[in-house]
């Protein structure tokens, strides 16, 4: 029981090959620097884009292969976009009801779900009148109501304040367990992932991927990250915070001129 991807896909001008497997329960994360193709990967899973070649298989159901492509509708993959994408001409209730009508054998209690995600007071407002954070919460409820068999979330908390983030993290966890709904969560915020996700797919600069236990993998990865302190375009200079070990490594490998160390 899992989501298996063995695909080649286009990312800008490059071809990227990826092979990975997500468990079909709990919340998994995709993490990596921006521009590495996290969103592209989600779009391929949802069926919004097609890989160049390969296979996408979910619980033995072939979603994409050389022979066939299954439409997003048939995949029943929910997608919470970075920019929420509510239907702006409708009020919140209509947004939710349209999604609810798509569910196969509705089981959700709309009132309860709206309460859980703190949007019960917003139902009569037009979608385009909401704040970014409110829109995102409505978008999550909307995608849940359509009863997906897998929910993809593309940096859903970028527009939220800390209080709302905590509420959302708690609710996502609860709902993933309660409805045994697997989720894939894209973020470049390590602490969100740490709180929310058990598994992690790490996309690296060199094109490699690593899959493993979320917090362990994050710890390992972040140790090797370098923090940029300042950048000076005119003098072509950047300042980095390096550990002594990183400094030795850079000194050895890099062709750049490395001057003083900031302690």
């Amino acid at each position: 029981m899992s989501l298996e991807l063995t695909i080649d896909y286009r990312l800008g001008r490059n071809n990227v090959a990826i092979k990975c497997q997500f468990p079909s329960q709990g919340i998994s994360a995709i993490y990596g620097p921006s521009g590495i193709g996290k969103t592209s990967l989600l779009r391929l899973i949802a069926g919004l884009d097609r890989p160049v070649s390969g296979d996408i298989v979910f619980n033995k159901e072939v979603w994409f292969s050389a022979e066939k492509t299954i439409s997003p509708q048939q995949r029943r993959v929910g997608f919470v976009f970075q920019d929420s994408r509510l239907f702006p001409h409708l009020d919140v209730r209509a947004n939710l009801m349209l999604a609810y009508q798509q569910a196969q054998g509705p089981t959700f209690d709309i009132e309860q779900l709206c309460g859980d995600f703190g949007i019960a007071d917003l139902l009569i407002l037009r979608a385009n009148k909401l704040s970014a954070g409110q829109q995102q919460r409505v978008a999550i409820v909307r995608s849940l109501l359509a009863q997906p068999q897998l929910l993809l979330l593309d940096e859903p908390m970028a527009a939220l304040d800390d209080g709302n983030k905590q509420l959302l993290i708690r609710q996502l966890k609860i709902h993933s367990e309660k409805y045994t709904l697997p989720m894939i969560y894209v973020s470049h915020n390590a602490s969100e992932i740490d709180q929310l996700c058990s598994q992690l797919l790490l996309l690296k600069h060199d094109g490699n991927v690593e899959m493993g236990h979320a917090s362990t993998l994050l710890d390992q990865y972040l140790q090797h990250q370098v923090e940029v302190i300042a950048a000076d375009d005119k003098r072509h200079q950047i300042s980095l915070a390096l550990t002594p070990e990183q400094y030795r490594q850079y000194k050895k490998q890099s062709h750049l001129l490395i001057s003083n160390i900031i302690k």
């Binding site: 949802a46 995608s143 359509a146």
Partner: peptide
Amino acid sequence: KELEAADTLGFSQWSKIRHIIVP
């Protein structure tokens, strides 16, 4: 954008025309 959202919610072609494109 809205059409892709509708796709992932499971909208049929006709629902997309009726509830999103035309309005």
